[in-house]
């Protein structure tokens, strides 16, 4: 992963700062909405690892989000007290195992076959939860209590409190971003990017590309599971709709709109799309047409997304700066 230029880094820190003070000044509706967006951002960041860095276009990533959510719901729906650490460990190992199995099969294919196979698995999981009478079917499952985040009987944050939950999710989002930046700056990350650029050549250099792709798939799946876990804990409700292929499609849209291969772009894209979904219905009842038009416009005019535009702007300003420095000499 390339080093993020200073001014863009500064811009991101400013955004984090704004997010940190928002609940103190903003109203409760938007605090809750932003909590939801940040959870989705964790999900889309993990998808960016696949699409933007490894070159694996997964069209079934929502499955792991849903599986994470269902792990919490199935094992703890009636629990009076949910031990956060135990629930989190269980969810993450569960989604890691699921993504290991699905990934192991899917990475054997490439191109459109990979896209379709990930879609097929996601559909299988969707119908599994949708039709199964044991797991709530199409009604979904309610979870009766919030996870209890304590160390040595000392409650750290009260997840029933909307503000606490907000900061809890913000911390998770920043942590996931930093973790993936670290992974991508390590030699492992460089190999992923190289696989995206030219898999044949990486294989010729003696790397087992299948192994790297699989590890990337499992990391992304597990983080998506984390996001699902947080969503289920936030709303205390899970539904098979979490796994639908529309969710996977919207997630791809968020990543591309924000800008692939930058991690923070996925977050920007998620914010942009959810705010559009929130604002457009106020303008017209038929806002989906506008949404569709925006998607098409992105493809035609903004293929590198918002982050790409930021990078171009930065490059442009730099060039101007250099020209000015030359003139001064």
């Amino acid at each position: 992963m390339k080093k993020t230029p200073g001014p863009i880094m500064l811009f991101l820190l400013l955004c984090i700062g704004l997010l940190a003070i928002f609940p103190l000044v903003g109203d409760d509706f938007y605090t809750e909405l932003i909590t939801k967006i940040m959870i989705l951002s964790i999900f889309t960041i993990s998808l960016d690892l696949l699409i933007g860095f490894t070159g694996l276009i997964s069209f079934g990533h929502a499955a792991f989000f849903g599986i994470g959510a269902y792990f919490l719901a199935i094992f703890f729906q009636d629990a009076e007290q949910i031990n956060y650490w135990w629930a989190l460990t269980l969810t993450l190992s569960g989604t890691a195992l699921a993504s290991l199995i699905v990934g192991w099969i899917c990475i054997r294919t490439s191109g459109i076959y990979f896209i379709m196979l990930t879609l097929a698995f996601a559909q299988m999981f969707f119908y599994f939860f949708f039709e199964s009478p044991h797991f709530g079917g199409d009604d979904g499952i309610f979870i009766s209590s919030k996870p209890d985040l304590s160390i040595a009987a000392e409650e750290l944050v009260d997840l029933g409190n909307e503000h606490h939950f907000y900061y809890f999710v913000l911390t998770w989002m920043v942590a996931v971003y930093l973790f993936l930046s670290m992974v991508l700056r390590a030699p492992f990350g460089y190999i992923l990017v190289a696989i995206k650029a030219n898999e044949q050549r990486v294989r010729a250099l003696g790397y087992s590309t299948q192994y790297y792709k699989l590890v990337s798939f499992v990391i992304a799946g597990t983080i998506a599971g984390l996001a699902g876990f947080l969503e289920a804990a936030h709303t205390s409700f899970v539904t098979p709709a979490y796994l639908s292929w529309h969710e996977s499609g919207i997630a791809i849209m968020m990543v591309v709109l924000g800008g692939m291969g930058t991690l923070f772009g996925a977050v920007i894209g998620t914010f942009a799309v959810v705010f559009l979904q929130d604002l457009l219905p106020a303008i017209t009842d038929h806002w989906q047409i506008i949404m569709g038009g925006i998607v098409i416009a992105i493809v035609l005019f903004l293929p590198n997304g918002i982050a790409g535009a930021l990078y171009s702007l930065h490059a442009l300003l730099n060039k101007k700066g250099l020209a000015k420095a030359d003139a001064d000499d």
């Binding site: 069209f59 896209i115 849209m253 989906q288 998607v295 293929p303």
Partner: peptide, 26 residues
């Protein structure tokens, strides 16, 4: 517009067409 483009953009643009078609139907 898509002939020389990556699969990803084809998926995205035709997804946009779905949204438009569904709403037009409505």
């Amino acid at each position: 517009q898509l002939y020389a483009r990556d699969h990803l953009y084809q998926v995205l643009l035709t997804y946009g067409l779905i949204l438009i078609a569904n709403e037009t139907q409505r």
